[in-house]
Design a binder for these strands. Sequence first.
DNA 1: CCGTTGCGATACCTGAGCGGTATCGTTCCG
DNA 2: CGGAACGATACCGCTCAGGTATCGCAACGG
Lengths: 301, 301
Amino acid sequence: MKFGPIEFRHLRYFTAVVESKSFRAAAQRLHVSQPPLTRQVQQLEELLGVSLLERQPRGVELTAAGAVFYEEARNLLALAEQAIDRTQMAAQGQLGRLDIGVFGSAVFDAIPRVIQAFRLAYPKVDIVLHNLDRAGQIRALRERRLTVGFNRFFVEEVGLLWDVVLHEQLNVAVHEAHPFAKRERLNFDDLADQPLIVYPRTSRPSFIDQVLSMFHSRHLTPQIVQEVDDVVTAIALVSSGFGLTLASDSALTLRLPGVVYVPLEVTEAQIDLCMIRRADDESALLRAFINVVHAVLPPRG
Amino acid sequence: MKFGPIEFRHLRYFTAVVESKSFRAAAQRLHVSQPPLTRQVQQLEELLGVSLLERQPRGVELTAAGAVFYEEARNLLALAEQAIDRTQMAAQGQLGRLDIGVFGSAVFDAIPRVIQAFRLAYPKVDIVLHNLDRAGQIRALRERRLTVGFNRFFVEEVGLLWDVVLHEQLNVAVHEAHPFAKRERLNFDDLADQPLIVYPRTSRPSFIDQVLSMFHSRHLTPQIVQEVDDVVTAIALVSSGFGLTLASDSALTLRLPGVVYVPLEVTEAQIDLCMIRRADDESALLRAFINVVHAVLPPRG
DNA sequence: CCGTTGCGATACCTGAGCGGTATCGTTCCG
DNA sequence: CGGAACGATACCGCTCAGGTATCGCAACGG
């Protein structure tokens, strides 16, 4: 007689017999007749080359090896259940890993809010944040190292899709000693002859270019006194009295000593936060994340 | 179409397809043709209600859920292998749990030597020592809480078997200030009028009765000045100059200040160590342990 | 003491389902 | 545009899981 490899059937039958201490009782429990049970357990024993049960006039008793195998079998069956559960959860986007690319001032407010909400709704999903500039995000998306990316703006890229997920207002960051600090609102004309700190220096075009185009459309030329890498450095310079800078709403959570934020005139002074993803990514996880993003971030800035 | 429950076959086929990134290649690896593979994987997906693979013109790609299930499947297959290994080891007595009952002075030398040797030969067997007197050992053996018991002697018990596993010589423990401390050997006549400490007080008959019968067979009557519970207490009293006591070779490892051991005349002054076990216990673990006992303890005391 | 009862094992049969061959539809490549 | 390679499908044969009937054995009750 030649037997194939072990199957879950052997484990189910064996554990049922052990738990019922009887072939007949186990057969009832499993809704099969008794002879197949006998046969499967015999096969299992032959397969293992080990006697698992001691057949006695009144029911069966486990051997030492049988006790060991019973524990193992129970464990395997439970793990198989778990495997199915976990797979089905993964299919519904409730389990897995989400790699998110972030860059710029959105990391200070919008992204944390999104992530907090997502973790609450999908606690078994591991979220990994990657600080990558736009080019890095696009490369990582293509190489499947990233599921979504956030950036100030994107251009059309084959195989990728992007949406604007948030409109933010612009604010002027000034030192409290500056006369603007007392103003309720400011407009672009006010800024034209002020010492302006701009960012980011690399990864252009970006936030700065959007800002500059707003100046140009008003036929204004800002006085750029310093270019820095990021918003934190820019605000730090403002804090030291070096000049003014512009910041999105997300940056308002950045509180540095002596720095006051004054809202800029609303008209057209909007800055976008965009989300980019693969066009062919139809995973439930991504869909779930997009839903959370749109639920958390207001449809209108 | 109605499918039964998941089987290991599904896991083996699925993992092979994932690892080969192709149904055809996996089919070769598994020594089956391609169509059954397709069918089993389709069944698996239907069983789970989840799409696991993305069929593409050049081979297959895992979905997110598929990646999760692949990890689970690998794990399950590995654990199944382990389960078989462990069961086979248990059948050979290389894995399991050995409950050993011990009592009296043998715990100081003979038993530790046996256990050390056994642990070396069977490292995956858990050894649990239980300090039980003879009656406790017999009850525990009957209730299967014990595999073997060691004691000074046993009487015939239905369902149980016992063997003498060690003959030990008797020694006289005296204080170094006592004149006997300088003697090379002593005999029973020397002890007749000496203040004798005897043990154990309970669990009779035991060591003390064996000793007393040696006196009586020589028509001697020892001067018992104190009965104590165990050999440690007896030696402690000797250490404080209270009197003499008799101790087996195993007790020689008990070194207390001022205590000197002098061997007793060899003839008939032997004390047995016995091992008791269930008559119906044919486990490989017990057989292995008995072999170690006989290998470690000298066949002649 | 012996018939009864309950256990697991065995013998034999039937059909579901696993694996086989042949072939299809699609996509990629030369 | 024809050929090659992929997975899916159709269909077939045979293995083997599960069914029924029965056996052999041990424990128990009258």
